[in-house]
């Protein structure tokens, strides 16, 4: 069994997949804490679907300009249209929410639907005989085992960006998440922080959703952080657990996918779910334990 594992890890595609999965789990784990505590769980879904619209637009633009690269890569050039598309969607969601009395989930729901509609329209406009070099199915369900070296560079850069934003601002983000008004009385620029959080989430989600799939993207943001919440006694613990749970479920899920020969997206999310179930039971035991 151990030997078999070592065998698997020797394949370069597996090493790239593991590395990509771990990097994505780290950034989603970090962001997920704030997403979950701010009740923005739907944001992951919304922005991942914005990525679908953005990829559709990007593919269409590049095809009609004849710029679409010949070689197949996970991050084909449409990403560079999708990225600003998701970014603008995220800031628009924040802006609409701030300037109307609509709640986050309602606002996200509207943008979600529009982005999917746009995506479907853009993809349908692509002539069937055009060589797009990728499968829309991969976009939806991910293709982590197909990650290439150049993709890893982009994922690493995204993780860097995420760390550069989140680590120095973690204390202020945490304070504003606990109580926005209290943080504001202490001079925290909560409005600006929120836009920064949405913007960072947009970049992380745009890049990650192409690897893990648009449909499963939200799971990476929400399930590890939610499991961590059940175990943690402080926000810092929650952050650490969220990253650890995200990373371990990714590794277990990827190995399981290869062993069982099933799609990796599903095994990763299922390992997250198993850990979530375990933490739920553990947390229940603790609550009952402290009561008696």
């Amino acid at each position: 069994m151990i030997l078999e594992l070592l065998d698997i890890v020797q394949y370069p595609f597996m090493r790239r997949a593991l590395l990509a999965g771990i990097l994505i789990a780290v950034m989603c784990g970090l962001l997920g804490v704030f997403v979950v505590q701010r009740r923005l769980s739907f944001l992951g879904d919304g922005l991942a679907h914005a990525a679908f619209g953005g990829m559709g637009l990007g593919t269409l633009l590049l095809l009609s300009g004849g710029w679409l690269g010949a070689e197949a890569a996970l991050f084909r050039q449409p990403l560079f249209v999708a990225l600003p598309f998701v970014f603008i969607t995220a800031l628009s969601i924040a802006w609409v929410r701030d300037n109307t009395n609509l709640s986050s989930d309602t606002t996200i729901g509207v943008f979600f639907a529009v982005a999917v509609a746009l995506g479907v329209m853009f993809f349908s406009l692509i002539p069937p005989d055009a060589s797009v070099n990728f499968d829309v199915m991969d976009l939806l369900f991910g293709s982590i085992l197909g990650v290439r070296q150049s993709d890893l560079v982009i994922i690493s850069a995204t993780l860097m960006l995420c760390l550069i934003v989140i680590i120095p601002l973690w204390g202020r983000l945490g304070y504003a998440t606990f109580d926005e008004e209290l943080a504001r009385t202490d001079g925290v620029a909560t409005r600006r922080l929120e836009y920064l959080l949405f913007g960072t989430a947009a970049v992380v989600i745009a890049v990650s959703s192409l690897v893990v799939g648009i449909i499963l993207m939200a799971a990476y943001l929400v399930i590890p952080a939610a499991s961590a919440r059940l175990l943690a006694k402080s926000l810092f613990q929650m952050t650490a657990f969220s990253v650890m749970i995200g990373v371990s479920s990714t590794v277990v899920g990827l190995l399981a996918a290869v062993f069982l020969d099933v799609p990796s997206g599903s095994t990763i999310v299922l390992s997250q779910a198993v850990l979530f179930a375990c933490t739920t039971l553990l947390a229940r035991r603790r609550i009952f334990g402290s009561r008696s």
Binding site: W170, G171, R172, G174, Y175, F178, L182, L235, F236
Partner: peptide
């Protein structure tokens, strides 16, 4: 938070 004006890790 009263001392730091941010959330402590």
């Amino acid at each position: 938070t009263g001392l730091r004006r941010s959330w402590p890790a």
